[in-house]
Amino acid sequence: MELPKFLLGDNTDCAKDIFVIHTDFPRFIINLLDDEIEWLEDFQGEDQQELETQVATLIEEASEFYDREMERYGNE
């Protein structure tokens, strides 16, 4: 199975939170409510440095994905 790059996550225990799951490396879940990220990878040394340069771009891509999905829901 090929997963899309981003998925929306929902949980009624966290009704106000907006979760986006990034399925490519580096895998993570971001809560767009506060931009908190939970990494699903273990990083060390050089990986950590590369990750830090990608974080802003990944957050922006996740936000754009969410906005696009909400626009599509609104058009249905």
Rank of each mutant, 00 (worst) to 15 (best):
M1Y: 10
M1H: 14
M1N: 12
E2G: 09
E2S: 13
E2I: 14
P4C: 07
K5S: 12
K5D: 08
F6L: 06
F6Y: 07
F6I: 04
L7M: 13
L7E: 06
L8I: 08
L8T: 06
L8K: 09
G9Q: 09
G9C: 08
D10F: 14
N11K: 10
N11I: 05
D13S: 09
C14N: 10
K16C: 11
K16F: 11
K16H: 14
D17L: 07
I18Q: 10
F19D: 04
F19Y: 12
V20N: 04
V20H: 00
V20G: 01
H22R: 13
H22V: 06
H22C: 08
H22K: 10
H22Q: 09
T23L: 12
T23F: 10
T23C: 15
T23K: 14
T23W: 11
T23A: 11
D24G: 03
D24R: 13
F25D: 13
F25T: 14
F25E: 14
P26V: 15
R27C: 13
R27P: 08
R27D: 09
R27S: 14
F28C: 08
I29R: 09
I29C: 10
I30L: 02
I30A: 05
I30W: 03
N31H: 06
N31D: 15
L32P: 00
L32R: 02
L33V: 07
L33K: 14
L33N: 12
L33E: 11
D34G: 04
D35Q: 05
E36N: 11
E36S: 14
I37N: 05
I37Y: 03
I37W: 01
E38L: 12
W39M: 15
L40R: 15
L40D: 09
E41T: 15
E41P: 06
E41S: 12
D42V: 15
F43H: 13
F43E: 08
Q44D: 15
G45Q: 07
G45N: 10
G45T: 04
E46L: 10
E46A: 11
E46F: 05
D47N: 11
D47I: 08
D47C: 08
Q48D: 09
Q48P: 01
Q49H: 09
E50H: 12
E52Y: 05
T53H: 03
Q54P: 01
V55Y: 00
A56D: 02
T57K: 07
L58R: 04
L58D: 01
L58H: 04
E60W: 00
E60H: 02
E60G: 01
E60A: 03
E61R: 03
E61N: 05
A62E: 02
A62V: 02
A62L: 01
S63I: 01
S63G: 00
E64F: 00
F65V: 01
D67I: 00
D67Y: 00
R68L: 05
E69I: 03
E69V: 05
M70R: 07
M70E: 04
M70W: 00
E71L: 03
E71K: 04
Y73N: 06
Y73V: 03
G74K: 02
G74R: 04
G74S: 04
N75L: 02
